[in-house]
Amino acid sequence: MSEIDKAWRLRTSVVLLRILIGWHFLYEGVIKLYDPEWTSFGYLASAQGPLKQFFLAMTNEAIINWTDGLNIAALIIVGLTLILGIFERVGTVIGIGLLAMYYLAHPPFPWLEQIHAEGNYWFVNKNLIELAALLVIYQLPTADYFGLHRILKKNKEDIKN
């Protein structure tokens, strides 16, 4: 297989990964946006692990609405940037931050009771894997190959020329 071929395959795979993760984030964000009764209260109030107090503090009556609003906004931003292929690195960093918080609120440590878990996990769960996948996307930007950035970049090049 030629180097060009290899590069094409890698790029295409990363684009696929980027879009799927974006899809996941966008869907979660929009579902919550349209559900007036959704709140992160339960997830945070039942937090465990080393940062438990931090997450409990976020359930404070005065800030829970901000917590919810920011979570929805962040989910949608990550979704849009990854799917559309624009500011993908910004989106990736926000996504990593979100996933790190989800992971730490309910870390799959063997000495903690597993709640909100639909499978069986030992230190590693899907949040952590998705986080690692975002690290790959951060290292291999593809928006100028597949995404709005491709058009914007050309636009800029046109202006320069």
Binding site: L26, V30, Y34, I83, L84, G85, G147, H149, I151
Partner: peptide
């Protein structure tokens, strides 16, 4: 155009599905 804008209909579709379900 194809590769640059392909995400847009996808966003539209996902947005619609999520909103409708919710």
């Amino acid at each position: 155009m194809l590769k640059g804008l392909a995400g847009l209909p996808l966003v539209g579709g996902i947005w619609w599905a999520a909103a409708a379900n919710s």
